[in-house]
């Protein structure tokens, strides 16, 4: 290992028979063969393209899940509402991952601000309330109510959604004291079903939109998207990182990354993501520095796979040594 940089390639190859080897021809043949391989695979097997979920398709396919999620956004209990950094600063509770005092998620702060109640419910409703006096009145009633009153309505309505039934286009909850919430949530469902919500969540101050943080966090807070992922076995505890929709191979190279999530303590740890990232970071550095790590770098010497790779060369050494009738140098002395 040491000092070999001082040796030129010519010196390094000294004493070894040099044979013709056409690198460019090899590259050309490999490139040609690979073209045939990918064309055949593409033609025969195609590629996965499961259509995306929209807020509209979610609201239509699972209206109760959609309304429950919207209510949770308003109440501040949805994933996107209570996530903590980088989405909001107000919640730094159990959802924020840390290892003791090591909490980079908190240190880096909020960079994709989401105000769940406003962004997901109050703003879209007020933007669509002109021309709908009933909705405008409900919004006014909600906004002018005390925090305690709002919480009382939300708690009662959330509990009622657990017993709700869906008939046609509407979600029916048992009678109760929910204030303006049924009116607001009926309007939310209508916005979702019509597709208006998809647009409202993307409209910001800009004409061009490429940031899907808001709608994706909305879907992430519901159960519909995760339910589909569960069907495809793409959830975290299903080795999901290496799986793909349909019968296609996925990112199989992530097998070790996703492996950790299948075993204790990572299976249940609330800070599993942070620990696994650190483990994989350390392992990556170990792999990179492997030539410098005694023990690990010696494995290929101990396991004689190289005897197969260079079997002709080792035979040649033995043959030459025998023909010179001198003491044969050991080919395994390292």
């Amino acid at each position: 290992m040491r000092h070999h940089r001082q040796i030129s390639k010519k010196e390094y190859y000294r004493g070894v028979q040099m044979l013709p080897y056409d690198l460019i021809k090899e590259l050309a043949i490999a490139t040609g063969v690979m073209l045939v391989v990918v064309l055949v695979l593409a033609a025969v097997l195609s590629s996965p393209d499961e259509p995306s979920v929209t807020v509209q398709s979610w609201a239509k396919a699972a209206p109760l899940d959609y309304v429950t999620t919207a209510t949770a956004e308003l109440a501040g209990t949805a994933e996107s509402a209570a996530y903590g950094p980088p989405y909001d600063q107000h919640h730094q509770g159990d959802d924020v991952q840390a290892i003791g005092p090591f909490a980079p998620q908190i240190w880096f702060g909020v960079h994709v601000p989401i105000n769940a109640a406003t962004d997901y419910v109050l703003q879209p409703l007020s933007e669509s309330s002109p021309g709908d006096p009933q909705l405008a009145a409900a919004l006014t009633e909600y906004r002018s109510a005390s925090h305690a009153q709002q919480q009382s309505w939300l708690t009662a309505y959330t509990a009622a959604l657990g017993k709700a039934t869906v008939s046609g286009d509407t979600v029916n909850v048992p009678q109760g004291h929910y204030g303006p919430l049924p009116t607001m949530m009926d309007a939310m469902l209508e916005l979702g079903r019509s597709g208006a919500m998809d647009g409202l969540l993307l409209s910001g101050q800009h004409f061009y939109q490429t940031d899907y943080s808001l709608p994706l966090m909305f879907m992430a807070s519901g159960g519909y998207l995760a339910g589909l992922a569960h069907q495809y076995k793409m959830e975290g505890n299903q080795w999901g990182m290496m799986n793909e929709t349909g019968s296609y191979p996925g990112q199989a190279w992530l097998w070790l990354y996703t492996f950790w999530y299948q075993i204790p303590p990572f299976l249940t740890a609330t800070n599993a993501d942070l620990i696994v990232v650190i483990i994989m970071g350390v392992l990556s550095i170990v792999l990179m520095l492997l030539p410098l790590i005694p023990g690990l770098r010696d494995i290929p010497r101990w396991v004689p796979v190289h005897r197969l790779v260079w079997r002709n060369y080792y035979q040649e050494i033995a043959r030459v040594a025998a023909s010179r009738q001198g003491p044969a140098p050991s080919a395994t002395s390292g």
Binding site: S46, Q238, E244, S247, P249, G250, A252
Partner: peptide, 24 residues
């Protein structure tokens, strides 16, 4: 290929036959 892949489930190991085939 768009129909769901069969999965092999042994203990905590869960792998799609597509990925398994690729690795083998």
């Amino acid at each position: 290929m768009n129909s769901p892949a069969p999965f092999l489930h042994v203990g905590f190991i869960l792998i799609s036959l597509s990925n398994l085939f690729l690795i083998v």
